[in-house]
Amino acid sequence: MTHDLQLVGLGKAYGATRAVEDVNLAVARGEMMALLGPSGCGKTTTLRMVAGFIAPTEGRILVDGADITGVTANRRDAGMVFQNYALFPHMTVARNVAFGLRCRRLPDAEVTARTAQALEQVGLGALAGRYPRQLSGGQQQRVALARVLVLRPKLLLFDEPLSNLDAKLRVQMRQEIRSLQQSVGITALFVTHDQDEASTIADRIAVMNQGRIEQVGTPSEVYNEPATRFVADFIGRSNMIEGTVEHAADGDLRVRINAGPVFPAHGNARPGQRGAIAVRPEKIDLAAADT
């Protein structure tokens, strides 16, 4: 049983500052959606609104079509993995994982069984009696993961969970998180500022900038067909060449580069519009000039 998530016109204003503006996003059942953008783009604020930690100033959050905008954080059933793990330092690994089950007042036998199972799932069965401070960063990350997976939540929320790990472990944990999420089939939102992370872990990426979503698409879509100049610039490397559209037909453009040569391009634009062509460095071939 998996669930879908919809954000409809979601916004958050702090006084005159608009941290998030008119965010519309549909995450399909079992899909992993990355929220990608530079710091301050509103991705974390969006995630925290879904978690229920921040009340949106406009818009709605729907799970399976039901409005949960007014539901308190402790009743949202959206398991969050925090950037710094946020484990309970005074509880053992097992008690950390059992915490959510205890909140649901499940019988002891079930709590014990499900806790043990969740710890096995993340490969930490042997460390149940340890305290968080006795674990490595990667192990703490797994505890944080087990702590939410054990509840079989409707949604999984990840707030830059890998940014405190070293490079090698980060790549390994990406794969682990991805395969765990796929095996349990829980719909997930994954906040990151790392585009490699977003493209390897997510089915689709929502690229955010200045509080808005610039583009939603698969990793190859946002890379190969950036919808805005920001996306072209932010994802991968691009050469930006300014010019004016001379001719447009069915997305095939002719763009004149500042009174110089005319280039073919692809995109939505009208003749006369100014803009920039983004050229990926690996798409440039050098050939001998015809003399």
Binding site: A51, G52, N74, R76, G79, M80, A86, F88, R104, V148
Partner: peptide, 11 residues
Amino acid sequence: AVEEAAENLGA
């Protein structure tokens, strides 16, 4: 964040 985690887990 530790308090938020508790709330998030249903406390």
